[in-house]
Amino acid sequence: MKWNPQDIETFLQSKEYVDTAVLPLLPVAFDSEMGQAAGMSEFITLVTGQLERQFKGRLLLLPGFSYLKTCEEEKLFTDLLLWESQLKESGFSHIFYLTSDLFWKSAESRLDGSLIWIPSIPLETMQEAQKISVVESQVKQMLTLFTGKWHEKE
């Protein structure tokens, strides 16, 4: 389910079946890393959109957690841990963070949720059909990861 009024209405009616939240981590930069950050954000947005289509009814895709690459590390964690706390209090037993920013890998142990780091694939030169194929391939690789995490807590 996506973060839109129609899907949220469905979510509220069937909340007991939706135990998974997906939060894309989207970097923003205004320096020499601007293009790279935009590419990472585009890629993760496409991957999480396809992931939501695969698991519609089981997960809620949240709007991306956008952050400045220049932001102080502790502030980023404080903000993200606040999201995590709210999601747990709201009944989500599985929280997945998806990112292409290697920064988050170094701090994975600080999160209770599952961090999935996917190297960004430059999509800007690809035809639309190629983009879809690449994204679908990435999502197929993640399916077993998601189902594995779900079975761990059952």
Results as ranks from 00 to 15, higher is better:
residue 131 K to T: 14
residue 135 V to E: 05
residue 113 G to S: 04
residue 123 L to G: 04
residue 136 E to I: 01
residue 131 K to W: 08
residue 128 E to L: 11
residue 116 I to Y: 02
residue 108 E to D: 10
residue 106 S to K: 15
residue 106 S to D: 11
residue 131 K to V: 15
residue 107 A to N: 05
residue 142 M to R: 09
residue 99 T to H: 01
residue 106 S to V: 00
residue 125 T to K: 14
residue 140 K to I: 04
residue 135 V to H: 01
residue 116 I to C: 04
residue 139 V to F: 10
residue 128 E to Q: 14
residue 111 L to P: 07
residue 111 L to R: 05
residue 126 M to N: 06
residue 138 Q to W: 00
residue 110 R to H: 09
residue 137 S to I: 00
residue 111 L to H: 02
residue 104 W to V: 04
residue 136 E to P: 02
residue 128 E to G: 11
residue 130 Q to V: 07
residue 135 V to P: 06
residue 135 V to N: 03
residue 132 I to S: 14
residue 129 A to L: 10
residue 98 L to F: 15
residue 131 K to S: 09
residue 138 Q to K: 12
residue 103 F to C: 08
residue 122 P to N: 14
residue 126 M to I: 10
residue 138 Q to Y: 03
residue 124 E to Y: 11
residue 125 T to P: 07
residue 117 W to P: 02
residue 121 I to V: 12
residue 122 P to L: 08
residue 142 M to C: 08
residue 118 I to D: 00
residue 120 S to N: 09
residue 109 S to D: 06
residue 125 T to W: 02
residue 130 Q to H: 13
residue 106 S to T: 08
residue 109 S to N: 12
residue 128 E to W: 15
residue 138 Q to E: 12
residue 141 Q to V: 04
residue 129 A to G: 08
residue 133 S to E: 15
residue 103 F to T: 13
residue 107 A to G: 13
residue 133 S to G: 11
residue 119 P to F: 04
residue 104 W to A: 04
residue 124 E to Q: 13
residue 99 T to G: 13
residue 127 Q to E: 12
residue 135 V to D: 04
residue 121 I to C: 10
residue 99 T to M: 03
residue 131 K to M: 11
residue 110 R to E: 10
residue 141 Q to D: 10
residue 136 E to K: 15
residue 100 S to A: 15
residue 121 I to F: 08
residue 105 K to S: 11
residue 119 P to S: 11
residue 98 L to T: 04
residue 137 S to N: 15
residue 102 L to D: 08
residue 126 M to A: 06
residue 115 L to S: 11
residue 133 S to N: 07
residue 122 P to G: 11
residue 136 E to C: 05
residue 98 L to Y: 11
residue 130 Q to T: 12
residue 120 S to I: 00
residue 120 S to C: 15
residue 138 Q to F: 03
residue 99 T to W: 03
residue 130 Q to F: 03
residue 112 D to C: 03
residue 100 S to P: 05
residue 127 Q to H: 13
residue 115 L to Y: 03
residue 113 G to R: 02
residue 100 S to F: 00
residue 127 Q to C: 09
residue 100 S to Y: 00
residue 134 V to F: 06
residue 136 E to Q: 15
residue 109 S to R: 13
residue 117 W to S: 06
residue 115 L to F: 07
residue 139 V to S: 11
residue 116 I to D: 01
residue 103 F to R: 14
residue 141 Q to T: 02
residue 130 Q to M: 12
residue 114 S to M: 06
residue 137 S to C: 01
residue 142 M to Y: 05
residue 118 I to N: 07
residue 140 K to V: 05
residue 139 V to Q: 08
residue 136 E to T: 12
residue 136 E to N: 15
residue 106 S to H: 02
residue 133 S to F: 03
residue 138 Q to C: 09
residue 134 V to N: 06
residue 104 W to L: 07
residue 115 L to E: 05
residue 139 V to T: 10
residue 114 S to A: 09
residue 118 I to C: 13
residue 120 S to R: 04
residue 118 I to F: 08
residue 100 S to K: 00
residue 98 L to V: 11
residue 114 S to N: 07
residue 121 I to G: 00
residue 119 P to G: 07
residue 113 G to H: 01
residue 134 V to C: 13
residue 112 D to W: 06
residue 104 W to G: 04
residue 109 S to Y: 09
residue 107 A to Y: 11
residue 128 E to S: 14
residue 109 S to Q: 09
residue 115 L to G: 06
residue 123 L to D: 09
residue 123 L to A: 05
residue 132 I to L: 13
